[in-house]
Design a protein around this nucleic acid. Structure first.
Lengths: 337, 337
DNA sequence: TAATTGCGCACAATCGTTTGAGCAATACTT
DNA sequence: AAGTATTGCTCAAACGATTGTGCGCAATTA
């Protein structure tokens, strides 16, 4: 009953027309020379009737929903959950709401979500893409601004904010080398994904010319993958490897678990280093040395970028040029290697 | 350009009226005796023009958005992230989208989010409430179905699905007793919250008549709280306690950290048991014995409940009666006590 | 006094759908 | 052959807002 009041109710209640009411309520009063008397009466009445604008009607008319579509490949993954949390907050601060969808690493679900975003008339899209091609997103971005985060495509002019996975992996690998490890096993995540490729490249480049042996196995950002690859590599009689580079925190967990099963002491018998931030890595024993990504900074940059594009388009300006950012990660040293 | 086609485009393209097009596209064709010829032509044209209905316009007209508002107190908390992930998936399976908001444990932000949900005409709301009173939500639920999850209010007829925190805490405490612990420290979360109160009640009831000493300290579901209370209780020369019951996984982490600082061996010198599910509790050393909440089951029940109410209201039926569910948690035994 | 200007507001179209009511043509009845 | 049913569709009014245009009136100017 409270929310039954609309612009028309207020109009008849105050005796003014709906247009006047609308202009007052949208803050266009002085632009249209509405009298102070009218402004006061209308605002007061709106408050009294507990008027809440119908955002759906507003959107239909104005083509602006003050909503951003956020698409991640798995909200149950702490990494994306943290990311989503930060972004939702940042958008909220700017008066925008978030329509969250989960592609579950599947292209079909990604496409569905994008359709939905467009149908819902979101003002912009922030996404961690899962599809292998940028084509669809590039097409969409002509209509609705799109900013990629965490993952990007090799040749695309879509704006993105990613951490520099190449540098991160290089840092991690060099750290292992400096500490005397000579036989390194890398466990990868989804191979087709850009972060994984970059990490692999960084890993290999760091090893170039070094007197070490190495191998890069695995194919998923999952606990199981970490577990299975460790069992495979360390399960037999002894192992060729003295250190492990886990390409994600989930992989790391699986590895830790496998080492425990195999009764191999992490930090002593084998060194281990991981990618990803994740507060609880500090609570493992030993605490895990890792490459952390500046999630907050990345999120802020992504949101900023998105809004600058939105603003530019709204004002018919050409879009800013530098829209692809690679930000450097940080090495957090603990005691696992 | 692709998405510029609307129902009117299709109408003029096919020569039929917009009403006919609409009825075909919404599957009401035979109900209105549209000819097969018309159906075929219209569907074919829609496909050819890549028609996507404007969900905003649809919502305005039908008052149904096929969207559910999901409100959690902190999406960056793994517990709620997991919950959100499950719920988003379940809703997606039923053809519904999710508008996600984060109240950050603040009443003001909760209220804002609820306003937004109503303005957006969500068809239903699933929320982990943070406010101390049920009043506002009860008011809203007359307009839009509301289901509480994880937390509820003591006397309310709002439907909810929570785990039985009383039983869970009792189970945990009894487990400690059975294993010979005699001096138990409980570290609480937010005292005003229903889950905390229930856990405390379960804890105390389990100890009734037993020959043990105990204390319940702390006041936040945070790592710091866990840390500080352990330091306070175990920091001096020896401690009165031989076991700790952490009321949440965050508290547990703080405790683990503090024990490490104090050089006290968990599992040997002190037993510890925790609340909350959290996959990584298995990766700590020792793995933590804990009370897990059946998140999936709870989510399914909550979604089911919400839809049954929505359906009942749509059909003008009276709403189902039994809508408040307390589901039993599970004791997951590991090696920390 | 008549023409001009500015002020304060109202009219009505519009956004893209859905939907109750109605209407012309054909088919069926008796 | 005239009346009734059925078929297959169209008309136009909503939903709740925004917004370009225009109009009556008073104050100012000529």
């Amino acid at each position: 009953m409270a929310s039954k009041s609309n612009i028309f109710t207020i109009a008849s209640e105050t005796g003014y027309s709906v247009s006047t009411v609308s202009r007052v309520l949208t803050g266009q009063a002085e632009k249209f020379r509405i009298s102070k008397k009218a402004i006061d009466l209308i605002s007061e009445t709106a408050r009294r009737l507990n008027y809440q604008p119908d955002l759906v009607a507003q959107t239909l008319r104005t083509k602006q929903s003050r909503t951003i579509g956020l698409l991640v490949p798995g909200i149950d993954n702490p990494f994306f959950a943290t990311l989503a949390g930060i972004i939702i907050k940042l958008l909220g601060d700017r008066g925008y709401h978030t329509l969250l969808a989960d592609s579950r690493e599947a292209e079909a679900e990604e496409e569905q979500a994008l359709q939905m975003f467009l149908g819902r008339k979101v003002d912009g899209i922030i996404t961690v893409p899962v599809s292998s091609s940028a084509a669809r997103l590039e097409q969409i971005s002509q209509q609705t601004p799109v900013v990629l985060i965490d993952r990007h495509f090799s040749k695309t002019n879509l704006p993105y904010v990613c951490t520099d996975n190449y540098v991160g992996a290089r840092m991690a690998t060099e750290y292992l080398l400096q500490h005397g490890y000579k036989r390194i096993l890398a466990i990868q995540g989804v191979r087709s994904s850009m972060p994984n490729q970059e990490r692999l490249r960084g890993f290999k480049d760091a090893l170039k010319g070094e007197d070490v042996i190495y191998e890069a196995v695995g194919d998923a950002f999952s606990v199981e993958n970490g577990h299975d690859e460790i069992v495979r590599a360390f399960g037999g009689n002894g192992s060729r490897f003295d250190a492990v580079f886990a390409f994600s925190a989930t992989i790391l967990l699986g590895a830790i678990d496998a080492f425990r099963e195999l009764n191999i002491k992490v930090g002593e018998e084998v060194g281990i280093i991981s990618y990803d931030n994740n507060g609880f890595l500090d609570f493992l024993d030993p605490a895990i040395t890792r490459v952390e990504q500046p999630l907050r900074e990345a999120s802020e940059l992504a949101v900023e970028t998105l809004f600058s594009i939105m603003e530019a388009r709204r004002e018919g300006r050409s879009e800013p040029e530098v829209l692809q950012r690679l930000i450097p990660p940080t090495l957090v040293v603990r005691s696992s290697c």
